[in-house]
């Protein structure tokens, strides 16, 4: 599988300097984007399109903390969601309460919960930093299972 960190020339770690990510993405886009190889040969155009698509994918993956963590965990040889399905029990309780509260909320209330859920997600991602530092791959997977659950709630809130 491709290493998105390597593709963008960034250090392989979860805490990412977002400015460096942006710079790396734009530098590479400027070099390989099809717009700048339009008058080139067919081979050059095809290569430009494929390379840009790969750069875009790497950028999208690394920009989103959830996908970045998933990608890094896979690169590190960590367990997949099918192998470790657990969610921290306290988190599950918290989410069940949250779901109930959301169901009772009106539109303004839902907006408030959406904001709260986002903040909760940020807290969860911050919590991944020490886990990655320690190399606790199973711990990371559990937290990502929790994050996936929370993202589901957020998506429901947004689509409502």
């Amino acid at each position: 599988m491709i290493d998105c960190f390597e593709r963008l020339g960034l250090p392989r770690r979860f805490s990412l300097d977002l400015t460096a990510l942006e710079t790396a993405f734009l530098d590479r886009s400027r070099a390989v984007h099809p717009d700048f190889h339009h008058s080139g040969s067919q081979g050059e155009q095809a290569a430009a399109e494929a390379l840009t698509a790969a750069v875009n994918e790497a950028y999208t993956t690394l920009k989103d903390p959830f996908r970045r963590a998933e990608h890094l965990l896979t690169l590190l040889g960590g367990p997949s969601a099918a192998e470790v399905k657990e969610i921290p029990p306290a988190f599950l309780m918290e989410m069940m309460d949250l779901r109930e509260e959301i169901e009772r909320a009106d539109a303004a209330g839902k907006l408030k919960y959406e904001k709260a859920a986002r903040q909760r997600l940020d807290v969860l991602f911050n919590g991944l930093v020490p886990l990655f530092d320690r190399g606790d791959l199973i711990g990371i997977r559990k937290e990502l299972n929790a994050a996936k659950y929370l993202r589901g709630i957020l998506r429901d809130l947004r689509d409502a």
Partner: peptide, 26 residues
């Protein structure tokens, strides 16, 4: 001509990319 030049063009783009992957600017 476009057809036979393809391998050369790909070779060239690959060099650009691998140089980029080593962190060089364009």
């Amino acid at each position: 001509f476009e057809k036979v030049i393809l391998p050369l063009a790909e070779l060239q783009m690959n060099v650009v990319t691998s140089a980029l992957l080593r962190g060089k600017t364009e």
